[in-house]
Amino acid sequence: MDTITHTLFGLSLYGAVDKKDMDKNTKGAYLLTAVGASQIPDIDVISRLWDTEGLYQMWHRGITHSIFLTPVWALLFFLLSLFLFKVKDKKLFLLGWLAVFIHDTSDLFNAWGTGYLEPFSNIRITFGTIPIVDLVFWIIIGTAFIFSKRNKLKSPYYFKMAWAFLLLHVIVQSTQGFLIYKQYDQQYDQIALSAGFIPWNYSVIAKKEDKVTIFNDNLFSEKEIQYVLQSNESADLDKLFSQRKEAKTLYEWSPFVVLVDDDEKLGLYDPRFYRNGQSFLFEFIEKNTER
């Protein structure tokens, strides 16, 4: 998910806590833990500063998003609360653990994927049933915020209800995505799903031999072909990988890629992010500048 959504998740966790008997320091500790732990896995973005091998694509959402690291992050915020606010409350550890778990698990549902099982597996798990920016999440949380301002005594109740609706939204979206995925399962060699910004709409990226077809599909209308892409499966990628290290990382990171080998370029791109004639995850070298 995007940074705003993760922040809203943290604020919603904080909103669901009954704080009527808390002092200022305790409230500060809970706010820090709920919001901070909801953001901490994305600290991996700083790896760009020392990435000289083109590995950032693999590092981002890698080990910091591992389910096995969640209690470590929770312990960090428990200790920060003790150090900064002098608050020692085991519920802070549980809150931090829940916040990190929600961050890591929610990231599984969009097309980018997550190293959820690192360091035991470097497979990027991705369901593709929720868009990276999901306005439905924002609307649900925003509605809870409005109601909580009207009746502060019932604020925790409204945010708990918001969490119930958030979970329901994920279940409905993912169930529909799974049913659509199964419709293509026997017809193509490889399939990937990418949820659209409009709820209940999905891009289905299907590869058979050297052709990749991108469909727009939902359960309530006929599927539409958006793009048909040709992959040059015979392309020799050794020169690309030697000159453009990011290309090898992308090749290993993506479920499958489209290979480009024409008079101008040698490269590859992830078709899940193909929009308006190009993918923003495209690594290539110009043939007229090859050495």
Rank of each mutant, 00 (worst) to 15 (best):
D2S: 08
L13Y: 00
A16H: 01
K20L: 07
D23W: 01
K24T: 03
T26C: 10
A29E: 00
Y30Q: 00
S38L: 03
D44A: 11
R48T: 09
L49G: 10
T52P: 09
T52C: 09
L55D: 15
H60D: 03
H60Q: 05
P71E: 03
L79V: 05
L84S: 02
F85N: 06
F93P: 02
A99S: 03
F101E: 13
F101S: 14
I102E: 10
S106C: 03
W112I: 13
E118R: 13
E118Q: 13
P119Q: 05
S121E: 01
F127S: 02
T129M: 01
P131I: 08
V133M: 12
L135H: 12
L135S: 13
W138L: 15
W138N: 14
I141Y: 08
G142C: 00
T143L: 05
K149N: 04
K149E: 02
L153V: 08
P156K: 00
Y157P: 00
H169A: 00
I171V: 13
V172W: 12
V172C: 13
Q173T: 11
Q173H: 11
Q176A: 09
G177A: 04
F178S: 10
D185I: 14
D185N: 13
D185Q: 15
Q187L: 15
G196E: 10
S203A: 15
S203Y: 11
K207Y: 11
D210Q: 10
D210Y: 12
K211D: 12
V212E: 01
I214Q: 13
D217V: 07
E224Q: 09
I225M: 03
V228K: 14
E233Y: 06
D236K: 04
K239V: 12
S242D: 09
A247D: 12
W253D: 01
F256G: 03
F256C: 03
V257R: 06
D261I: 05
D263H: 08
Y269K: 02
D270A: 02
P271E: 06
N276H: 14
N276S: 14
F282G: 07
E283L: 11
K287G: 08
E290K: 06
